[in-house]
Design a protein around this nucleic acid. Structure first.
Length: 562
RNA sequence: GAGCCCGUAGCUCAGUCGGUAGAGCACGAGACUUUUAAUCUUGGGGUCGUGGGUUCGAUUCCCACCGGGCUCACCA
């Protein structure tokens, strides 16, 4: 195999995008050697494709497919810098609308257009030329938001412009062979009416699923019966007047466009096999395919846009950076993974760890580092001195609903760190706060104060308020120390006071446990003086007052929920 | 029925072209701070699902089987 021009470090890269790219490169060399197929001629572009059914909105699987395909494309480009590559995002916007989606307005209007191509149905949102155009725009905005490099393609445009005409005529020529492949896979009743051609009815505008009564090769047309009028209708297969049924459509597109690489979920394994056979019948070479596993929700069921289970892209991006989502998609595409909220912190920390490792790695190491692929080789610096897990922990114990609180703690830990100097850290804090707010805080269990604790807490409130002005004049560190003294003073009473080894009056750990359990809903917490210094003296007093107003134990654990 | 994936420490999982197993959490012990942890040190714990094959050697590669999950068999 003439791979001699591939750089040494790349040749042994084992990251899966490289393995995929290598497979693709070998295919191209094989075509050249055999003198058959698109790449028998040199200088052909290498075409990557991802496809969408545009009746739904872009979802997390869409992101995954485009991200993964982009990584393979990039790996390929580095293996074969001389070859041009393209990534086509192909929208099946000529498909007939089968049912009215749940998540759109004007459902009655849409119901009147069932069966018509999406691009022939008015936009229920009223913002675009058609429903198909609307969804295409949403798709493009979604992909653009992540900065993907791709070219958009509309099935409707391709059909109507005549770009598929030659391939469609080829389908007509090989009609019998194609039918021989597809019919055995169908149930008896479908088998009776199946046709790869779906004529678009000129009278109603609908995509018709009807038996083909006659094929006219010279006229490149088909004849079918309009059941409503009882008339025979002749429809050319070209110019967008016929569309192809799904599996034939995929095969024809591969053949017509010369698609070299396309991945798909395991639910399409049989479709890939069948479409590949059809593609060969047409005279093409089907693309290299990677079958990826589907994503599962927390119950282990397939995530689908119609069910709306699992996790949406928007939800992920509320609690973790886009890079963490990309890492999730990078890791082991052939392995089924649960896509649920609790993976976000782990992916975020793994991403940070890959990022931190990268500067010290040699080329071979970098090629195996997911962060290298995620950032297409242009990797930012990890400016966070702490892990995301630590930020989450910090947000939890500090009741942080505001970045300023986290920054207060951070500056004591890593002085001189600023949002401007550590933009990644600043972003991570927002995610940590959102995660805390939505997942951790609702789980907090606040215990009601015992009568003894209540006395001590009321004393603490009084001490805080009496010293408010003096405390406010101190710096953060001095204030933290001063507040800590007040806390000890408030706790020096039964049952918390206890003699220490040196004879002075100390305070039992039970007092501090009460503070965490009653005020913060946690078993443990930060040094409370530091917390107060950052959270605010009056705010803390108010926090204690609110805690004391909570009703007493609601269950036998002596706990009530927040 | 066909196909895909998984089976490694109590739990969740890593394991990078084969060299007698690792992390996080949990659990045990210790250090430290005004007996408070976004601290540090340390310990225990695994027939790597089962049985074959290839190999000097297999958690890793191949086959079979067992167990679990999912997908496709109508539409895309």
């Amino acid at each position: 195999m003439p791979l001699g021009h591939v750089p040494e470090a790349l040749r042994h890269a084992r990251a899966w995008p490289y393995e995929e790219a290598m497979r693709l490169l070998e295919r191209i060399h094989a075509e050249r050697a055999a003198g058959h197929g698109k790449h028998a001629a040199r200088g052909q572009e290498v075409l990557f494709e991802t496809g969408y059914g545009p009746s739904g909105l872009p979802h997390i699987g869409t992101f995954g497919e485009v991200a993964r395909t982009s990584w393979v494309r990039r790996a390929f480009a580095s293996l074969a810098p001389g070859m041009r590559t393209r990534l086509l995002a192909f929208s099946d916007d000529m498909d007939g609308l089968r049912k009215v989606p749940d998540n759109v307005p004007n459902k009655e209007m849409l119901a009147q257009h069932l069966g018509k191509p999406l691009t022939s149905i008015p936009d229920p949102f009223g913002t675009h030329e058609s429903f198909g155009h609307h969804n295409n725009a949403r798709l493009r905005a979604f992909l653009d938001g992540f900065g993907f490099a791709y070219e958009f393609a509309s099935s409707t445009d391709y059909y109507r412009s005549g770009r598929f005409d030659a391939a469609l005529c080829r389908v007509l020529e090989t009609y019998d062979e194609i039918l021989a492949v597809i019919l055995p896979t169908l149930g008896p009743e479908r088998r009776a009416t199946y046709s790869p051609f779906l004529p678009v009815c000129a009278r109603t505008g609908r995509v018709m699923q009807v038996p083909i009564l006659e094929r006219k090769h010279d006229a490149a047309s088909i004849v079918w019966k309009d059941e409503e009028t009882g008339q025979l209708v002749e429809t050319p297969v070209t110019g967008g007047r016929c569309k192809l049924q799904w599996k034939a459509d995929w095969a024809m597109r591969w053949f017509a466009l010369g698609v070299d690489y396309e991945m798909s979920g395991k639910d399409l394994i049989d479709s890939v096999k069948l479409s590949s056979r059809i593609c060969r019948i047409l005279g093409g070479v089907p693309p290299e395919n990677l079958t990826y596993e589907l994503f599962l929700d927390e119950k282990g069921e397939k995530i689908s846009k119609s069910k709306g289970n699992g996790l949406s892209v928007e939800e992920w991006l509320t609690y973790g950076p886009p890079e963490s989502l990309a890492l999730f998609m990078y890791h082991a595409p052939k392995r089924a993974k649960r896509l649920y909220f609790d993976v976000i912190p782990r992916m975020t920390d793994e991403y940070l760890s890959h990022l931190a490792k990268l500067p010290g790695q040699d080329e071979a190491g970098r090629l195996g580092n997911p962060a290298w692929h995620i950032h297409a080789g242009d990797v930012p610096r990890n400016d966070s001195p702490v892990t995301f897990g630590v930020l989450l922990n910090l947000a939890t114990v500090a009741n942080a609903e505001d970045k300023a609180i986290l920054w207060g703690y951070l500056n004591r830990y890593a002085p001189g760190t600023t949002p401007a100097g550590a933009p990644l850290l600043d972003r991570l804090m927002e995610y940590a706060i959102a995660y805390y707010r939505d997942f951790v805080k609702p789980q907090k269990r606040y215990r009601a104060a015992t009568p003894e604790e209540r006395v001590a807490f009321e004393d603490l409130i009084r001490r805080l308020r009496e010293n408010k002005a003096a405390l406010g004049a101190l710096g953060v560190d001095a204030r933290a120390a001063a507040v800590q003294d007040l806390i000890y003073d408030a706790g020096r009473r039964p049952p918390f006071m206890q003699k220490q080894k040196d004879g002075t009056n100390g305070v039992s750990i039970e007092w501090f446990n009460a503070i965490y359990q009653v005020l913060l809903g946690e078993e443990r917490g930060p040094r409370f003086g530091s917390f107060v210094a950052l959270y605010g003296v009056e705010e803390t007093a108010a926090l204690i007052e609110a805690a004391l107003k909570r009703p007493p134990a609601a269950d036998d654990q002596g706990r009530v929920s927040a």
